[in-house]
Amino acid sequence: MTFGLLSPLQCSRLLNSLVRAHSQTVRLRRFSEKFPSNEHIRRFISENTELAGEQSLTPEMKLRLFTPGCRFWTERAELWPFDDPYWAIYWPGGQALSRYLMDHPDVCVGKAVLDLGSGCGASAIAAKICGSAHVVANDIDPLAAVVTQMNSELNKVEPPVCLTSNMIGSDPEGFDLILLGDMFYDECLADSLHSWLDSCIKTHRTKVLIGDPGRAPFEGHDVRKHLHHLARFELPECVREENYGLTTSDVWRYHPEL
């Protein structure tokens, strides 16, 4: 391949794709070396999380999460053997999105749903509970895929299809609805999501729902100009304390034509 034949933008996108692919390969190799079987993975998650979820916006849902009773709640971060365990926290944007789906099952009943950055799998599970025809939970952390399967079993629903490839920038043909809970926490990521979601909507007429508690990269981003507000939820006290005083979380529909 000759980079000189590509435009600067094409070259940048290609390099970013190569970096993502390499990082994914390293993660998966490290993961498989540490855990030779699915049984070992499940045991590790069970030993380092607790059943939680009652003090959230979806108390009817059981989830394996980090709690103050877990070793790595206070343990030094460098002792954690993998990437940051975002899947072990029930983020307030994801809580609002899951609550909204549970309150409005018609949004996803019979639909093909993609939960992007699915983490613990709560929104994917909510979509399953509400009767979605097909659900994909996408998170680049392999542990998130396993904990999503475990959480699905806890809630007595068939696990969604779990994918660990980075789907941002791909062509998600066949999805009626894309869910993003607390994904606009970084400005560069927000830029990537904005461009990709525009393409998804314009190409496939995909419906996009976003859950966010008002984080600065989201509030100050151009994407806010294209959002229709659907709901606001008061966060439980413990969720406020764990999220530096954030008090509410909102659900928005992304609609570039607004």
Rank of each mutant, 00 (worst) to 15 (best):
S118K: 05
G121L: 06
G121A: 08
A122N: 08
I125L: 05
G131F: 07
S132V: 02
S132G: 10
H134A: 11
V135H: 00
V136A: 07
N138G: 09
D139A: 05
I140H: 12
D141R: 05
P142S: 01
L143N: 04
A144K: 02
A144L: 01
V147H: 00
V147T: 11
N155V: 04
N155W: 06
P160S: 09
P160W: 05
C162G: 08
C162W: 01
L163V: 15
T164D: 14
S165N: 14
M167C: 13
G169K: 07
G169D: 06
D171Q: 13
F175P: 02
D176M: 05
D176W: 05
L177P: 00
L177N: 03
L179W: 09
G181S: 07
G181E: 04
G181P: 00
M183E: 12
M183F: 08
L189G: 09
L189I: 15
L189W: 01
A190E: 02
D191F: 10
H194N: 13
D198P: 00
T203L: 11
H204D: 05
R205P: 01
V208Q: 03
V208G: 04
V208D: 05
L209K: 01
I210M: 09
I210L: 10
D212V: 05
E219S: 15
H221F: 11
R224S: 15
L230M: 13
L230R: 14
C238T: 14
V239M: 13
V239S: 14
V239H: 08
R240T: 14
